[in-house]
């Protein structure tokens, strides 16, 4: 990939300091995102997957400077945006948008849909007040809602319709890049398919780039160009969709893929599953060495002590696992 990335994430780190104990007398650090680097190319859909608490959402938030990064860089249009204060960040906010998981809590219940969608347009002075109704109805049409919805309040809408409104709001200031943070996870299967189709259509129409954060691998496979797998704050594997799903290298990716149920009873009866034992360790005290070694079926002594390097084994296929190199060598 010779193309210049739209966004370059370099050694991004986000630690949270939490107070523990009944009176908050003990301090501790949550290692939410630890030394994560990847590029996002224009027009692609990069998905981040992993179990809850693996840091995929925090990566999305930190990347948009919604949470201050502990260290590391996010380069967008030549500027390290995570070092900017809110005021200097503002021009970039227009181009970098986000759609959240829960369409019930992200819309202000006292604002009409028209006001919700129109607010960013006025804020970024992309249209005058007189042009606003026109803009709003065009945006609503883009997400498949009739223009009369502009007069309605969020409580009158179903979950799927609200998520459409959230998408229209993100689209309002003509962004280049949208983070979809579990944007379809709260929706029913039939509605979920509608929203996936809508996201794909909009991407084609406006040349959008998505960072798609999800835990449903079947959906991720359906819409992604490239997929990154995270485990306990670190990136385990990053590859194109074909590479990742046909030739997963990291033992965690393999286990994750084999845990996904398939809608085929015959296949399910014969399928060999590799089921991980135990839970994800606490991010307050992540294991030393490779963070996956406590649950890894092929862990070696080295894995307990040395953090595996993040390397490109095949062009475009990154992995951090000691065992992977050995397999190819042997």
């Amino acid at each position: 990939m010779a193309a210049e990335p739209l966004i370059k994430v370099e050694n991004l780190v986000k630690h949270f300091v939490v107070r523990l104990g009944a009176f908050g007398e003990r301090g501790a650090t949550v290692y939410a995102v630890d030394d994560v680097s990847f590029d996002i190319f224009a027009g692609e859909t990069l998905s981040l997957v992993g179990e809850s608490g693996c840091g995929k959402s925090t990566t999305g938030f930190t990347l948009l400077n919604l949470q201050k990064a502990t260290s590391g860089k996010v380069i967008f249009q030549g500027e390290n945006i995570v070092s900017l204060d809110e005021k200097r960040m503002r021009p970039y906010r227009r181009e970098l948008q986000i759609v959240f998981q829960d369409p019930y809590s992200t819309l202000n219940p006292r604002m009409t849909i028209g006001e919700v969608v129109g607010e960013p347009i006025l804020f970024h002075k992309l249209a005058t007040k007189a042009e606003l109704p026109e803009c709003v109805s065009r945006l609503l049409a883009d997400v498949g809602l009739p223009a009369r919805f502009a007069q309605r309040y969020p409580h009158e809408l179903s979950g799927g319709q609200r998520q459409r409104v959230a998408i229209a709001r993100a689209l309002a200031c003509q962004p280049k890049f949208i983070v979809c943070d579990e944007a379809i996870s709260a929706l029913d299967v039939s509605v979920q398919a509608q929203i996936i189709n809508l996201l794909l259509d909009l991407q084609e129409k406006y040349g959008l780039t998505y960072l798609f954060i999800a835990h449903d691998l079947a959906v991720v496979r359906h819409i992604s160009t490239r997929v990154g797998v995270m485990y306990l704050g670190r990136m385990a594997e990053l590859a194109t969709r074909e590479q990742l799903f046909s030739n997963p290298l990291h033992p965690y990716t393999r286990a994750l893929l084999s845990a996904v149920p398939e809608a085929d009873p015959e296949l399910e009866k014969t399928r060999q599953r590799q089921i991980l034992t135990g839970d994800v360790p606490s991010p307050l005290a992540p294991p030393a060495g490779c963070r996956f070694h406590t649950r890894c079926p092929i862990a070696m002594d080295k894995c307990k002590a040395v953090v595996p390097e993040w390397r490109e084994v095949v062009p475009g296929h990154h992995v951090s696992c000691h065992a992977v190199g050995m397999e190819t060598a042997g």
Binding site: S158, G160, Q161, V189, S190, V191, Q192, A193, Q194, I196, N197, L200, L217, A218, V219, R221, H222, R241, F245, L257, V260, E262, A263, D264, L267
Partner: peptide, 24 residues
């Protein structure tokens, strides 16, 4: 049928669109 068709499958090739059930 609509429900089954709207589930993306891991074993499928990437289809550009999922079939979905309109309305709610």
């Amino acid at each position: 049928r609509g429900l089954l068709a709207s589930i993306p499958k891991l074993s499928d090739e990437r289809a550009s669109r999922l079939s979905s059930i309109g309305g709610t």
